[in-house]
């Protein structure tokens, strides 16, 4: 559970950074003249929290196979899209007019979701490199060789 929470926390901070970038790009594209108050600073954090909820709720102690992991990731991403779209557009009545924005946000969520996993993988790549170096030292020491 501890490892899962650490992974989720790292994912949260990467998400918040990427959401901020996505809001900047989508805002410039759809509503470039819109002005915000200080509450705008809270939105990336709120979306980051919403995005973390499915991951926290869907935690399983079971070791999943590659196929199960991919299915779970797809379900998790779909849930995040539904939650964020509901949070952002749920209060509006003119939904058909908002379709382009909804599609833009959905695509952004997919891109952010993939990027979060990509950055997580990059961090794991660095960890794996350190582990391999430690392994070589361990093997050398265990086989009686000097460092």
């Amino acid at each position: 559970m501890k490892e899962h929470l650490q992974t989720q926390l790292a994912g949260f901070f990467i998400s918040v950074t990427l959401i901020t970038a996505a809001m900047f790009i989508l805002g410039l594209f759809f509503q470039p003249d819109l002005r915000f108050g200080y509450e705008a600073f809270a939105y990336p954090l709120i979306y980051g929290v919403i995005g973390s909820v499915p991951g926290l709720l869907m935690y399983s102690k079971k070791e999943l196979t590659l196929k199960q992991t991919l299915i779970r990731e797809f379900i998790q991403m779909s849930l995040i899209i539904v939650l964020i779209i509901t949070f952002m557009f749920g209060r509006f009545k003119n939904i058909p007019e908002l379709i382009p924005q909804i599609i833009g946000v959905s695509v952004s969520i997919v891109i952010i979701y993939v990027l979060v996993h990509f950055f997580g993988w990059l961090m794991d790549l660095k960890t794996a490199k350190v582990m391999t170096e430690d392994l070589k030292r361990f093997q050398q020491k265990a086989s009686g060789g000097s460092e």
């Binding site: 490892e3 899962h4 992974t7 999943l64 590659l66 992991t69 991919l70 997580g120 993988w121 794991d124 790549l125 960890t127 794996a128 582990m131 391999t132 392994l135 361990f138 093997q139 265990a142 086989s143």
Partner: peptide, 16 residues
């Protein structure tokens, strides 16, 4: 057997 591992790579979902 740790002596039989050639390298460690990242896998999906925080695993290696």
């Amino acid at each position: 057997n740790l002596m039989k591992i050639d390298s460690i790579r990242p896998s999906l979902n925080g695993r290696f």
